[in-house]
Design a protein around this nucleic acid. Structure first.
Lengths: 342, 342
DNA sequence: CTGAAAGCGCTTACAG
DNA sequence: CTGAAAGCGCTTACAG
């Protein structure tokens, strides 16, 4: 008959039992004092608080999570933040979550397949919700989340799937604004330079450009793809800008690429916007720098993060909400890399 | 006599009990199969694995953490990543931790005082270790960590305190290399532009510059402070560069500031490095861009993150290790913003 | 309002 | 190698 002796009280780990003993009440009473909205007399409250303070007691979040409804853990599955944009989003999300007492668990993901691993790990830790801002979500994994009642919020991509909310910028409309500005500025030979079809937002931006140009009776004169780890598109931009029939404008999938185009144009001795106009997407801080003054489409990161967090709360309160696709409005910021419209 | 019925099996939450039942073994057996190095017969192993797979069972990390030695959670307390550098570090850390099966819990911190909150929250979740890369650690909090056996690793700052490891770049030596390059290039009127004394690394860099110059019989001709949220130092750089006795070189606390100086110099029509040489610190990717070609001191982020993670493992294995202050070597990268040395 | 009891999902000695 | 039992630190009905 193995009789294991209780071995707390070592390691300075103060538990609810220690507080209960010190305060002369039951552990239930202590628990209630530390639970909002639970009933405890003023006297009990005072004694428990005093004892807790004296002992330096803090409830074990893990134990709480194990037994309670929530863990207050939200997982973020995100790719390598080679883009300033991702880091800014991570930050904004952590901030918005903190306002709700929720903590951010990070799953940094390398390949596409790793999204799955990241989500599973989130589930292992019983995250209250998982925010995916990388790659694509395998069907089996999204079903598992659904079955477990863990909301999935997709950022920057759309997946029409029951229970999966999608929050992303209005990429098409941003691209339309850019296209119209370029055309009104006299550009006719407009090229697209982006990260290619693997980047969801990028491809929407490309489609948006294509649609808007079609509306104006035009079409992109070229479409090129960049390896963003590598060179911010210097190589692709060089090819585009050295072509015999050079484009008179390049619309880029991200600001980072657009800045690379600016660099390349400079290196080739081309004037911006006279020889070639350039428009980016995201409006990262650097785009406003005097050296660049990049015309770009502003993507409101803070609003996006707040919308994500609001949606998490809504779903946690009401699990059976129908899935939404929420578009955050984007807004053109005209600076110095496009021609002035009279 | 309240008799609460077990209410698992709802919500699709598969527990160790379900697997045990399906495999016809005890929960202990299942647990052992899922614990590396625990003994289980090949037959048991096979049946348990089959049952687990069929049911889609994954151990609850929270329950494991509650009863086991480790949570495999490492907390990072970090400030607003207004600096690319911080994001890169976060990423590198997440990566290095993943290799050890550890997950990153983020505490984004705004003011100095919030460092305390972030650390306490980490402790609430029973993090195995806490990495602090922001502000300063209150004595009471570091003592609490120590008492609980949770290692603290400081990044980018030094705190001589029992049990607190510090890992940071060799700022002084980096500054020395920069100073020597500038002086050998003919600069004599060298100014410092940084984030001021609140930024630990910055002040070491400033000290390093001062010492190295003193060694060469010189002293900084000016020292200015930048508000990095605001303008990347455009204002401060403008003041410095418009002074009657203009410096012939500016050594900057970070690359971002140095890029701001470059921008400012351009705006003022000054040639770099002929009129003024500029050196940064960190070697962020952008510094290598053709528009900037900034001479800077390389700070190896990946090495730093790996060192942090190694140290965490070492301390977890051997809690009573004496505290260390580990300096990661820095290396000057000469590019186009300093004069060529013959 | 309060305490005893059962339970969250797991692991770890302890006998066998 | 294996299972029964106790326990991790907490919360939540249930009686009182």
């Amino acid at each position: 008959m193995g009789r294991a002796l209780p071995q707390n009280s070592c390691m300075g780990r103060i538990t609810i039992r220690d507080v209960a003993k010190a305060a002369g009440v039951s552990t239930s009473a202590v628990s209630r004092v530390f639970t909002d909205g639970a009933s405890a007399s003023a006297a009990t409250r005072a004694r428990v608080n005093a004892a807790a303070k004296a002992l330096g007691y803090r409830p074990n979040a893990l134990a709480r999570a194990l037994v309670g409804e929530r863990t207050n853990l939200v997982a973020l599955v995100i790719g390598q933040a080679r883009n300033v944009f991702d880091s800014l989003f991570l930050e904004a999300l952590a901030d918005a979550l903190a306002k709700h007492g929720q903590n951010l668990l990070i799953s940094l993901v390398h390949g596409e397949s790793a999204v799955d691993e990241g989500m599973m790990s989130a589930l292992d830790y019983q995250a209250d919700a998982v925010v995916v801002a990388a790659g694509t979500v395998p069907l089996a994994t999204s079903e598992r989340c659904l079955r477990l009642g863990v909301p999935i919020i997709l950022c920057g991509r759309v997946l029409e799937r029951e229970g999966v909310d999608c929050i992303l910028g209005d990429n098409r409309d941003g691209a339309r604004q850019a296209a119209e500005l370029l055309v009104r500025g006299g550009c006719r030979r407009i090229a697209y330079l982006g990260r290619g079809p693997t980047a969801y937002s990028d491809s929407e931006r490309e489609d948006g450009l294509r649609e808007a140009l079609a509306h104006l009776g035009l079409a992109p004169v070229a479409t090129a793809t960049v390896d963003p780890d590598n060179d911010h598109g210097f190589a692709a931009a060089t090819t585009l800008l050295s072509a015999p029939q050079r484009p008179d404008a390049i619309f880029c999938g991200t600001d980072l690429i657009a800045l690379g185009v600016l660099e390349t144009a400079r290196a080739l001795g081309l004037r911006v916007p006279e020889d070639v106009a350039v428009v980016g997407f995201d409006n990262v801080p650097m785009s406003a720098w005097p050296s660049f003054r990049l015309t770009t489409v502003d993507f409101p990161i803070a609003t996006t993060a707040e919308t994500v967090v609001e949606r998490i709360q809504a779903r946690l309160a009401e699990p059976n909400l129908p899935a939404i696709v929420r578009r955050i409005p984007t807004r053109l910021v005209a600076r110095a890399t496009t021609r002035r419209i009279p």
